[in-house]
Design a protein around this nucleic acid. Structure first.
Ligand SMILES: [Mn+2]
Ligand SMILES: [Mn+2]
Ligand SMILES: [Zn+2]
Ligand SMILES: [Zn+2]
Lengths: 148, 148
DNA sequence: GTGCAAATGCAAATCGTTAGCAACAAGCAT
DNA sequence: ATGCTTGTTGCTAACGATTTGCATTTGCAC
């Protein structure tokens, strides 16, 4: 189970932050570590409720804020929709969002990252963080009606 | 007045879109063409009210949607805050936001734009639009207490 | 001018998210 | 195990940004 390690890591972060490991938190951490996508608060909530009927959406939001605060997760605010989260990845990456399906594809480019820093430096700034999102449409490949 | 040309251009866009040139719209267009910054709806509203007491915030929002729709303005959703707008620039650019002051600095990089398209293409996508925002802090320059 | 569809102002509604608060439960001390 | 203290919870109300419904006004083509 690749998720087990991720879960342990998340719990460790909370434990070291000196906050209590409660039942709702445990459930949310598990969900987060199993998700491979970029769920929003409601999606996490829906899955949590299936485990514990009594969990509240407020707690999901509070827990996401807590985890973001501790650097355990990242929050993304893609075009329009609500905040979406992902377990903080070991290596930085940016996102390409399929405008037709909503699919999120991850990518990383050292060259772009370097250029960004260069640009900021030229302007007299150092980057604290950045946001790079590509919104695109699948290219129709001549052969076969591959385009949905 | 550099703004006059901008105003005429905005009015022309509306006229050609076949919508009525109303009093509130004229006021908002003028404000938009004079702004050099990236105002949000309330900021535009505040200035509009000074010209015509009876203008409503709803109309500002509706007008911004209309103009965005016609491609006359661009909407930006920077970190946290409300949508901010700018008269659609002739040449594309991205933004660097000063995390301390909130200042917005514009920049353009052909190399980054090219790399983005390359990346998308490699993933089988063509870019519809993108969002690149750098959030940074002014670099303290050894001499003089320039960094505030 | 007249008529009518389009646009307005106002208020109420929506959406994602946060805040207030009484009841509850982690986790350390007995 | 049993308390005790205090952080957490679930609930509901509040929030800020934006949209909507609707009766009233207004552009503007005739
Ligand atoms: Mn990701
Ligand atoms: Mn700009
Ligand atoms: Zn990046
Ligand atoms: Zn760009």
């Amino acid at each position: 189970m690749v998720a087990k390690a991720a879960l342990d890591e998340l719990e460790k972060i909370l434990r070291e932050a000196g906050v209590r490991i409660t039942r709702p938190r445990r459930i949310i951490l598990r969900i987060l570590s199993e998700y491979d996508d970029h769920p929003d608060a409601r999606a996490i909530f829906r899955r949590a409720v299936r485990v514990d009927e009594s969990i509240s959406l407020s707690t999901v939001y509070r827990t996401m804020n807590l985890l973001e605060d501790k650097g355990a997760i990242h929050r993304h605010s893609f075009q329009g929709g609500p905040s979406r989260f992902e377990h903080a990845p070991q290596n930085h990456h940016d996102h390409l969002i399929d405008v037709d399906t909503g699919n999120v594809i991850e990518f990383a480019s050292d060259r772009i990252e370097k250029l960004q820093e260069e640009i900021a430096r030229d302007l007299g700034y150092e980057i604290v963080h950045h946001r790079l999102e590509l919104y695109g449409r699948k290219i129709k490949t001549g052969k076969g009606a591959k385009g949905r």
